[in-house]
């Protein structure tokens, strides 16, 4: 279950004065079971790229292979195969709370599985499980999604996609607009999902998440692929040129290393461990 882009190009409003090339010749392979971040400045084509992964957009030229589904610019689409693809690749949009519409939280989460012809009993079980996964207990099930707080709505919306049991989960800026604690909860949830074997693709421009959470990074600029590398190597790129902010912890570690320390950048997520290794280093100098 990998995603492969071959010369993927997408142009919005082709042959009109408003023509705009959003993606240019992207060649990319996203492997199965990875935790991948797609990073870039606003307007770099991140969202356009992920909308190709579940057949919301189709390439203007080139191809996208998602498992055995081939997405190209041919007019005729097989409706059933497309539906299957959307079940396999769950896409959580930016500010997904706007997609809620049912009377109760449980019904809304059941909406996805029901569309994929899952029987009601299974859909209900899946919905309950998905809601528990995002940390919403029984007391929420019968409430209206519109009376929840922003963070809770976001979690209901994510549960709505999880209940479809997609193999690949794509999220477009899932932490945008959440308070730090809420954002952390979402990231922890994603980590757990990834550990349980799901492929997670995360669209973000938060480099802290890139440094501390993911495995692979896809770097985009103006619709072009700049680099696809592991989450530490990506910092070799001149990120400030791409209008991305380098995390303070990364700057801290690298500048200490420039002064003769031998610290591991991977420790950046754990302040206590970092402090410990700094201390060890100082101790070793004293000896």
């Amino acid at each position: 279950m990998s995603i492969k882009c071959l010369d993927l190009t997408h142009t919005y409003q082709i042959k009109s004065p408003l023509e705009q090339e959003a993606l240019k010749n992207i060649n990319l392979t996203l492997e199965d079971g990875k935790y991948i971040a797609i990073v870039g400045h606003t307007g770099s084509g991140k969202s356009t790229l992920v909308e190709h992964f579940n057949g919301l957009l189709f390439p203007t030229s080139g191809e996208v292979h998602i498992d055995d589904y081939i997405s190209n610019n041919k007019k005729r689409k097989n409706k059933k195969e497309l539906l299957k693809l959307r079940e396999k690749v769950g896409l959580v949009f930016q500010f997904p709370e706007y997609q809620l519409f049912e009377e109760t939280v449980l019904k809304d989460v059941m909406f996805g599985p029901k569309n994929f012809k899952v029987d009601i009993e299974t859909a209900k079980n899946r919905a309950i499980e998905a809601l528990r996964q995002v940390g919403l207990d029984d007391s929420y099930f019968e409430r209206s999604p519109f009376e929840l707080s922003g963070g809770e709505k976001r979690r209901v919306a994510i549960a709505g996609i999880l209940a479809m049991e997609p193999k690949i989960l794509v999220l477009d800026e899932p932490t945008a607009g959440l308070d730090p604690l809420g954002a952390k909860e979402i990231l922890n949830l994603l980590k757990r999902l990834h550990e349980s074997g799901k492929t997670i693709i995360l669209v973000t421009h938060d480099m802290d998440i890139v440094l501390n959470e993911v495995e692979d990074v896809v770097l985009l600029k103006d619709g072009q692929l700049i680099r696809h590398a592991d989450h530490i190597k990506i910092f070799e790129e001149n990120l400030e040129d791409l209008s991305l902010e380098v995390p303070v912890s990364y700057k801290f570690i690298t500048s200490l290393n420039e002064h003769g320390y031998h610290l591991d950048v991977k420790d950046s997520k754990d302040v206590l461990k970092l402090a410990k290794s700094i201390k060890e280093e100082i101790d070793s100098w004293r000896r």
């Binding site: 919301l56 539906l83 959307r86 949009f93 706007y98 997609q99 996805g112 569309n115 996609i161 479809m164």
Partner: peptide, 19 residues
């Protein structure tokens, strides 16, 4: 724009607006 966005989000949840 908003309608377009919601349509895409619901299409991701398996809604078929055309057929």
């Amino acid at each position: 724009d908003e309608a377009n966005r919601i349509m895409k989000a619901q299409a991701s949840r398996g809604v078929d607006f055309k057929h």
